[in-house]
């Protein structure tokens, strides 16, 4: 019951948090910023509209948003929010999750290539390259988690008795993991310093340029999928930060959703104080995150168990 409730809450609340990022950025810029519910308004507006399709496109273009949306929802079904058992789980579900996200990416990329636009092709080439490297980081983290917890499913990573949190026995390694995961979050969700969602020059975009030609409900599906994806990574990090062992599961859930704002604030702060990297430095950034994860893995060989 609690897991079902928290899933519904997550699905409903995911568009709220990106509003926090905008607020933080506005704060740094000394502005008032858009209202907190701005993303809901945007989604509602998009759902009311029709669409314009390019004459170059085929059915693949329309399939892109649908697949990427489905691929963004699936990981949430397997995610144990606030330590509650997830809706589904099995040994190896993390691999399925990562590959389903890969499926979403495949169709986003193919749909973008369908428009015959040189800019979108450029974005696709970057997206597949960077996310391949980011996937390496995630697998290094999975190796570490398997080593520490002996299991391969998201819900048993964070179930009782497992101590994959900062306060646990191997907290030192979790520090590395959190940093690596945050770097992956920035990469996979195309935030500064990897990509700038607020830029206006198509030549420099990664994710935004791939969805240039989508409009109306299609765009709404893509946006919502992007919110879920960001939510997934943020929730992952929060689970690592804090064990959520309050006696009442409802309290845990509330605590969890409040803490989530922390990650989004961090994203907002990073976005306000950093400039984006030159494109050729991005692989180095992601490689650094991989090596962080790998450092942790190697350390489990030697001393830290």
């Amino acid at each position: 019951m609690a897991s079902f409730l928290s899933l519904l809450l997550a699905l409903a609340a995911a568009p709220l948090y990106p509003g926090i990022i905008l607020k933080v950025k506005a704060f740094f810029a000394g502005k008032k910023g858009p209202p907190l519910l701005i993303k809901y308004y945007t989604l509602w507006k998009l759902l009311q509209k029709g669409s314009v399709y390019s004459t170059s496109t085929t059915f693949v273009f329309k399939l892109g948003p649908v697949v990427s949306f489905a691929a963004a929802v699936l990981p949430l079904l397997f995610f144990p929010f606030a330590g509650n058992a997830s809706l589904f789980s099995f040994h190896g579900d993390v691999v399925l999750m990562l590959y389903v996200m890969g499926m979403g990416r495949f169709f986003t990329v193919v749909a973008a290539l369908d428009t015959a636009s040189p800019f979108e092709g450029m974005g696709c080439a970057r997206e597949v390259f960077f996310s391949t490297l980011a996937e390496l980081t995630l697998f290094a983290i999975l190796i570490l988690f398997y080593r520490l917890s002996g299991s391969l499913s998201m819900s048993s990573f964070f179930s009782e008795g497992n101590t994959l949190t900062l306060a646990g026995a191997s907290g030192a390694l979790i520090v590395l993991v959190i940093v690596a995961l945050f770097m992956v979050l920035l990469t996979e969700n195309s935030r500064v310093p990897v990509d700038d969602p607020a830029t206006h020059l198509e030549l420099t975009m990664i994710h935004e340029v791939m969805i240039l030609d989508h409009s109306g409900p299609d765009l709404a599906l893509i946006e919502l999928g992007a919110f879920y994806k960001l939510f997934f990574y943020a929730a992952f990090i929060i689970q690592l930060l804090c064990p959520f062992s309050l006696p009442l599961s409802l309290l845990n859930i509330i605590f969890f959703f409040i803490l989530l704002a922390l990650v989004y604030t961090a994203v907002g702060v990073i976005e306000s104080i950093m400039a984006r990297f030159k494109m050729n430095l991005v692989p180095k950034f992601i490689l650094t995150s991989f090596v962080l994860g790998f450092f942790a893995v190697i350390l489990t060989m030697g001393v830290l168990q």
Binding site: A167, A169, A172, V175, V179, K284, L287, L292, F295
Partner: peptide, 24 residues
């Protein structure tokens, strides 16, 4: 409880890594 020594050592490794990757 958090083992501060390990955390610090891991952070030292982090700086080692960052120094290898820093461009400025």
């Amino acid at each position: 409880m958090i083992n501060f020594l390990e955390v610090i050592l891991v952070l030292i490794l982090l700086t080692v890594l960052l120094s290898l990757g820093s461009t400025r």
